[in-house]
Simulated scan of single mutants.
Amino acid sequence: MLVVLCASLLAVSCRNSAEEARTSLSLKIEDGEGSRTIMPSQTLLDVQQYSITGSGPLGAVFGPVLSTDSVVSIKDLAVGKWTITAKALNAQNNELAEGEGTFTISKGENEATIVLDDMTGTGTLQLNFKWSSDICTETEICILIKVEDSKGNVITKTREISKSVESATVVMNLDAGCHVLNVQVQDSSGNIGIGATDAVRIVANTRSTGTIELKGSKPSDPSSGSNGTSLSIDNRIGTPMNFYIDYFPKNLSKGKFTTLNACYTNLPIGVTEKDLTYQWYRDGVLMSPASADNISFMADEGVHRYDVIVKSSKEGTLCGASLNLNVSN
């Protein structure tokens, strides 16, 4: 998530001391891009207003100045060094991002930039799991959850439950920002055969809810592929990044060479194909360390979930897509 504030400062008077000299400050706000999969409602990701505060020479302060416009005029500022903080707020006044800069304001025109690249606060992730009682032959299953943020910090959680209940809910408190969610399921013997990977967006003081259906490997007829597109959102100006997975050949069978392609319908402003990296997962397990928009393999019999996580060099643009492939003999 990136927001740039370009500050243009104009002196309106000239006096002998920093305490007496005053200027006006004009802030131009430009929105950046962002994206995600499991998330709050779109309205809670939209910026409704900006809050700007500052502290300057001899204890001078201003704000908070609130504005829904892209240009904010702040008058009667003392000439000297100022530290200015800007925050982006949603409709519930929860912080989406903030940034800070220190500038020396002098007589005449001044230019300054503040980058809002810090997604602040904590929010809640709620995961609702569903499965059928024939998910495995054991009576108990263990759901292993790993959440990794953009800085590589990892939080893990384990939930053991009887498979007969066919559902479970797990709630986690996470720092605001973009995360990669990895889920794997073990039976009581420690065997792993089911999993999923998703992109997650957390907003301060807000709950992001996702439902994950866990499917066993037992095949059904006819052979098919079903798009389970799970991705996008969080663009401050409302333009989502959307990906889906396509596959060929369409006539799936065991042992046949199969290729998956990550396809997009549009990219946010400022993001190009060369900025993108990809991670492919099968049942929640990383398939290859290589990063490409496609992957090929020999199809196995059964139902398997394939996920792709797409990243770019811009903070907040994490997204993902999923596909369930059902291959019979």
Rank of each mutant, 00 (worst) to 15 (best):
D198Y: 15
D198E: 14
D198V: 00
D198R: 15
D198H: 15
D198M: 05
A199G: 15
A199I: 03
A199D: 07
V200H: 03
V200W: 01
R201M: 08
I202Y: 01
I202R: 01
I202A: 03
I202W: 01
V203A: 05
V203M: 00
N205D: 14
N205F: 02
N205M: 03
T206R: 05
T206W: 03
R207F: 00
R207A: 11
R207C: 11
R207L: 08
S208C: 02
T209V: 15
T209A: 12
T209E: 13
T209W: 01
T209I: 13
T209Q: 10
T209R: 08
G210T: 06
G210I: 05
G210C: 08
G210Q: 07
T211G: 02
T211R: 12
T211H: 00
T211L: 09
I212S: 02
I212E: 04
I212D: 02
E213R: 12
E213G: 12
L214C: 10
L214P: 02
L214W: 02
L214E: 03
K215L: 14
K215T: 15
K215C: 11
K215E: 13
K215G: 08
G216C: 08
G216L: 07
S217L: 11
S217D: 13
S217K: 13
S217N: 15
S217F: 06
S217W: 04
K218D: 10
K218E: 13
K218V: 14
K218F: 09
P219N: 10
P219V: 10
P219E: 05
S220K: 11
D221H: 11
D221G: 04
D221K: 15
D221F: 14
P222K: 06
P222F: 06
P222S: 10
S223T: 14
S223I: 04
S224V: 00
G225N: 09
S226P: 00
S226H: 07
N227T: 08
N227Y: 08
G228T: 11
G228Y: 10
G228Q: 13
G228F: 09
T229Y: 06
T229W: 09
T229R: 12
